[in-house]
């Protein structure tokens, strides 16, 4: 555990909780892509199957359970409790265009051709692109609530901090994992455009809106 890893995890946790609270407090999931949230629930489910097979630490187990629990709670709020506020018309990204290629890639490029390992690889690849329906929705509506941009910033920051974590681990522990690193770079790059808008607009007190 190093400082980048810890702050990355906390940033991830903050993102998840910001989104849950935003939906809960406003009693609305307007502007939130339910498809991205389903993908994240799928990511956590397929990655944390090792909860049944290996124990790493109390921290590790607790965080996994919190992430999974919050992911499903978010999906429940969007598709059940506050379904009436869900903006399905603007959430029109075709997720099969992500899930099918990612599934194929995880079968082709993995560390070990075993079910758990392939599912772990699938989760890593899928996470890297799971935010695309949300970004697509924002580009379609041309705007995002400020609280939604805070969520996206924390979520993007998390993987960027993991990149520093992996550099740290490579130098000090000799660890590297090409699958996680390449996917993590892709994931972080997808947020770059958003990071720019966040810094130049949201942090200066303006609402995030895209030119028509």
């Amino acid at each position: 555990m190093n400082i980048f890893r810890l702050t990355g995890d906390l940033s991830h946790l903050a993102a998840i909780i910001i989104l849950l609270l935003k939906i809960w407090k406003s009693r609305s999931c307007a502007g939130i892509s339910g498809k991205s949230q389903i993908l994240f629930a799928l990511v956590f489910t397929t990655r944390y199957l090792d909860l049944f097979t290996s124990f790493i630490s109390l921290y590790n187990t607790c965080m996994k359970l919190i992430y999974i629990g919050c992911a499903y709670a978010t999906v429940y709020l969007i598709y059940a409790k506050f379904r009436a506020t869900y903006d399905g018309n603007h959430d029109s990204f075709r997720v099969e265009f992500l899930v099918v290629p990612v599934g194929g890639l995880s079968v082709l490029i993995n560390h070990d051709f075993s079910p758990l390992e392939i599912l772990w690889t699938f989760s890593i690849y899928l996470e890297s692109v799971a935010i695309l329906p949300q970004l697509f929705m924002i580009s379609k509506t041309g705007e995002a609530e400020t609280i939604t941009t805070h969520y996206l910033f924390c979520l993007g920051l998390y993987r960027a901090l993991y990149l520093f974590n992996w550099i740290w681990r490579f130098y000090f522990e000799g660890f590297f994992d090409m699958i996680a690193i390449v996917a993590g770079v892709v994931q972080t790059v997808l947020y770059c455009d958003f990071f720019y808008l966040y810094v130049t607009k949201v942090l200066k007190g303006k609402k995030l809106s895209l030119p028509a």
């Binding site: 890893r5 090792d50 290996s54 996994k64 070990d112 993991y162 681990r169 994992d177």
Partner: peptide
């Protein structure tokens, strides 16, 4: 081949 990290990350 790829060297694999221990799966202690989230």
């Amino acid at each position: 081949a790829f060297k694999q990290m221990e799966k202690d990350e989230l």
